[in-house]
Amino acid sequence: MSNRFKLITDGFVKNNPTFVLILGMCPTLATTTSAINGLSMGLATLFVLVLSNIVISAIAPVVPDKVHIPAYIVVIATFVTLVQLLMQAFTPAMYETLGLFIPLIVVNCIILGRAEAFASKNGVLDSACDGLGVGLGFTCSLTVLGAVREMLGSGSIFGWNFLGGNDGMLAFVMAPGAFICLGYLMVLFNKFLKKS
């Protein structure tokens, strides 16, 4: 039990996908224009990660070695399409905001990476916990990055405007701000959280 709990908590600091493993940079940079967008993208990825980890750990023993990558990709793509359809149906506005980056969850290296490194070698429950931990760590990083960019760039947080309608520094909502913010957040992470 404590082992599984550790699998979940590892995803936050020790194996944090964004700050330590440096995986899945594209959605991290592109969708974090606000805290809520970052959170939604994180949750969509979490959903795919947990389900694909479960299915892949279940089918891994019967998949022939040479075709395991295509087989895993098909499984992942199925869950991504499922998320796509569900979001289109129930959160159409968010689907439009995140746009291209929902189908691109397929090529998010975190998911195939966890499938290869963990799910294909471990049991279903452990894999689910691993997916949950890494997914939550990813969600957490994206929400933090989104919140920082939203605060600096639009002067609001989760849509609540604390600058009284004044504009923030717009560059932080745009592309350059994404790179610079993530760079500095990584510096802070290295300085205070990472154990050398």
């Binding site: 998949v63 087989a71 098909v74 499984v75 793509a77 499922l82």
Partner: peptide, 23 residues
């Protein structure tokens, strides 16, 4: 993982694709 041969590779990929498309 199972040792690969042409038959089980084709079988496995077809099965995965079929199940996923159906889903």
């Amino acid at each position: 993982a199972v040792k690969s041969n042409l038959k089980n590779m084709a079988l496995c990929l077809t099965a995965v694709c079929l199940v996923c498309s159906a889903l």
